[in-house]
């Protein structure tokens, strides 16, 4: 039974969803703190807070997907940690998704997704 393609797809979905939310929230934070009054108490709109909280929960789902994939691919600890942290750095999860697909694609045929 080959679980890797499913795990890879789950990771891709979470990497993109989490990545997009994080990217939007980060750009918003930069804009808000530099140009608006987000540094002061109560300066932030509700949607902004919700977006960050949403990223927290999405990142949790991302962690599950990433750990699952790392276990299936028998990743060493530090590579696994790098994969997990990619969900907290803006735009890093997109790169992680690219790297993971390239890596899985380079594996021997019996592990690669069947066409």
């Amino acid at each position: 039974m080959n679980k890797i393609p499913t795990a890879l797809l789950a990771f891709r979905i979470m990497a993109w969803v989490t990545g997009v939310v994080l990217a939007v929230a980060s750009v918003w934070a930069l804009y808000g703190y530099v140009l608006l009054n987000y540094g002061t108490q109560g300066g932030k709109p509700l949607l902004y807070s919700i977006l960050w909280v949403a990223h927290g929960w999405l990142y949790f789902a991302y962690l599950i997907a990433a750990v699952n994939l790392a276990f299936l691919l028998r990743f060493p600890i530090f590579r696994t940690l790098a994969l997990l942290l990619a969900g907290t750095i803006p735009f890093a999860s997109f790169y992680a998704d690219f790297v993971m697909h390239r890596y899985v694609g380079s594996l021997p045929v019996k592990r690669a997704p069947t066409q």
Partner: peptide, 10 residues
């Protein structure tokens, strides 16, 4: 303060 509360839980 929604954000801080959820961060604590997270």
């Amino acid at each position: 303060p929604l954000q801080n509360f959820f961060y604590a839980i997270q």
